[in-house]
């Protein structure tokens, strides 16, 4: 399955505004999208509650996965959001 590995650089980690922006973008994707911390079970990238509970802090790395038509474009966009300050 195509994936992107990205380090979260925002001060607040993947919380607050970055989390909301990320979830809104993921929700537009036609396929399932997953996000995980390395070595941990992935969670639904369209779920703000699961992403908050994942508790991704600044400087932590996450892996985002999706499969299907247009998956690469979706992953690029999401990796860009997660990697933005």
């Amino acid at each position: 399955m195509p994936e992107r590995k990205v380090t979260v650089v925002a001060d607040v980690g993947l919380h607050a505004r970055p989390a909301a922006t990320f979830v809104r973008a993921a929700a537009k994707a036609p396929m399932d999208v997953w996000i995980a911390k390395p070595g941990r079970d992935p969670v639904n990238a369209k779920s703000i509650l699961q992403i908050l509970a994942l508790d991704v802090q600044q400087d932590e790395t996450v892996v985002i996965k999706a499969e299907g038509d247009g998956a690469d474009a979706v992953l690029d966009e999401l990796a860009n959001i997660a990697g933005s300050p």
Partner: peptide
């Protein structure tokens, strides 16, 4: 806006 996302959260 984050709260609005919580209300329509797919897991929920």
């Amino acid at each position: 806006r984050a709260q609005a996302l919580m209300a329509t959260d797919p897991g929920l």
